[in-house]
Write a protein that binds this DNA or RNA. Sequence first.
DNA 1: TTGTATATTGTTATAATATAACGTTATGTA
DNA 2: TACATAACGTTATATTATAACAATATACAA
Lengths: 132, 132
Amino acid sequence: MQKQQYLSKNQKIVLEHVEKANQPLKAYSILYNVQKKGLKAPLQVYRALDKLVEIGKIHKIESRNAFVACKNANCVVSNATAFSICESCEKVTEINNSKLSKYLGNFEDSSGMKYSKYNLEFFGLCKKCKNK
Amino acid sequence: MQKQQYLSKNQKIVLEHVEKANQPLKAYSILYNVQKKGLKAPLQVYRALDKLVEIGKIHKIESRNAFVACKNANCVVSNATAFSICESCEKVTEINNSKLSKYLGNFEDSSGMKYSKYNLEFFGLCKKCKNK
DNA sequence: TTGTATATTGTTATAATATAACGTTATGTA
DNA sequence: TACATAACGTTATATTATAACAATATACAA
Ligand SMILES: [Zn+2]
Ligand SMILES: [Zn+2]
Ligand SMILES: [Zn+2]
Ligand SMILES: [Zn+2]
């Protein structure tokens, strides 16, 4: 069996829902909202999320245990992700900065370990919240 | 009341245990192991961890929900952390690289948001696991 | 030293996040 | 067809983390 070409039914349902949101969603909030479409159990959501994360359609915001759709055409796989997170309103934005990704993609430290993946999360206050 | 100068009893117990480990520990594993010292409930561990993370004595490895002691004298507060994580043996090392921290500390993206904190996690195979 | 504010503790219960284990059904390919 | 892999459905359970409440300890200023 070859690499999957199309998304399965559950994967499509979950991806569509997360894409509509424009912000990170929690797994159980996704579950609650796709129940009308037939997904009844957490595992159905988590499995779909796992696959979507694997292929880069969705990223997990680790510090928030939340999932957000990728809007960056370059993210074929989730191997280089960076986000800015507002600690006040929780707005999350995927950073798409070629200098940063180049820098981190080539980063090597003294251990000699070569990295195949990274995830970076910046925290601060977004423009809106800074001016409050 | 001023900034706390000394660690409290529970904070000391948890920190000592995590420092001995030399690797990230899960909160409930910490709990289990400090029960002989009188900490009985998850909250006692989580509260101590919260404080220790806040003051930079301990860092949380977000992708693993695990806690590791800081060995980097510069980490007075946990506002700039970077780790390498082996996806095979789960060995975690805190990266202490001044170029990297300088680069990320000064990073600004197009949104104009200035960051007060970041956490970076690199994934790959450590030397040992690469040669298996 | 007394009052006050804050930090920490102890405790029980519960919320939120995620996976194990099982059997079934669908899909791609030889 | 036969085979392997992927996805599905379902129930139960594991893991991670917090709510809520009452008590005690600590720092500091008046
Ligand atoms: Zn992306
Ligand atoms: Zn904000
Ligand atoms: Zn550190
Ligand atoms: Zn390793």
